[in-house]
Amino acid sequence: MTPVKLDLSPLRRAAAWHWAEYAFWLLPLVAYFVFPKNLALLSQIAITALFCLSLDLILGYAGIVSLGHAAFFGLGAYAAGLMAKYGWGDPLLGLAGAALAAAAAGFLTSFLVLRGADLTRLMVTLGVSMMLYEAANKLTDFTGGVDGLQGVDIQPVLGMFSFDLYGKTAYWYSVAVLFLMFWVARRLVHSPFGLSLRGIRQNVGRMPAIGAPVNARLVAAYTIGAAYAGVAGALLTQTTQFVSLDVMAFSRSAELLLILVLGGTGSLYGALIGTMVFMAAHHFLSDINPQYWQFWLGAALVLIVLFARDGIMGLLRKLSAPARTPS
């Protein structure tokens, strides 16, 4: 073998943690002490961040656009809710059940999104989520329909930390699950599997020509993304002890897509930061004036899609990158 005179470290160390990442993960701790009265909102942010992460896995990495991702969130939410209602109230068990239910649905519907381009996929994902929404709406004996699912009785986390009125347990539980799932997703996107997903997103036509089974990879990615969404849904159920029909609503899917585009696709952190910015802005601005909130949200979306395609993460990257000399 000829020794290669090349510094391989940029690729070898691509998965190493950056100092900014450590700093980022101190935020949940800081937020806890700075906003002790807003733990419910902070938990919602963590849950939505996980939900957004799940969309980033399928859109930002595998390149599958979805307008119906709330279907899996809702399935997870109902799965965890029903389990708790019928005596399986252990939170971690609930997460596992929700992940399985959503993954099964993701796996089955993934075959529908394999065919066709973006528009087809938008319509198929939208259609599937509308069907599930209507099913949940009609199966009132099972889901409670528009009244929501009552009687969700969640046991203490790990048998030790019961959900308290202040939302402390709910917060730390949500943050812990978010972090663990993020950590796994981070491994995944830096693995050869993750690289192949980026390959599919960047040039789906080339992948079979280098020996990659594209459809199987997409099925896997979509299934994993669905499982992640299911876990996020379960977290919402468990921390609020209730499931309302709007877990599956179209507006949730659309808003999620908006958040991800705002934050920037394909970096995982874009999903997290986008969620934080969006929900914080929503919280502060919609109190002042709900109409203005919608207006500025729309304006921000248009500006980002036109001028900052990579969202907040793209801007951060531009700010932090040293001016590069063209080679």
Binding site: L8, P10, L11, R12, R13, A14, A15, A16, R187, L188, H190, S191, P192, F193, G194, L195, S196, R198, G199, Q202, N203, I210, G211, A212, P213, R217, A220
Partner: peptide, 28 residues
């Protein structure tokens, strides 16, 4: 388009070596 040259070729090598399903160990 958005990969470095080394990343692209590594992707192709990984597929040939049957590593494409490996989702835990980083490419590096």
């Amino acid at each position: 388009a958005e990969m470095t040259v080394l990343e692209s070729v590594t992707l192709s090598v990984c597929e040939r070596l049957g590593l494409g399903w490996n989702w835990w160990r980083p490419v590096g």
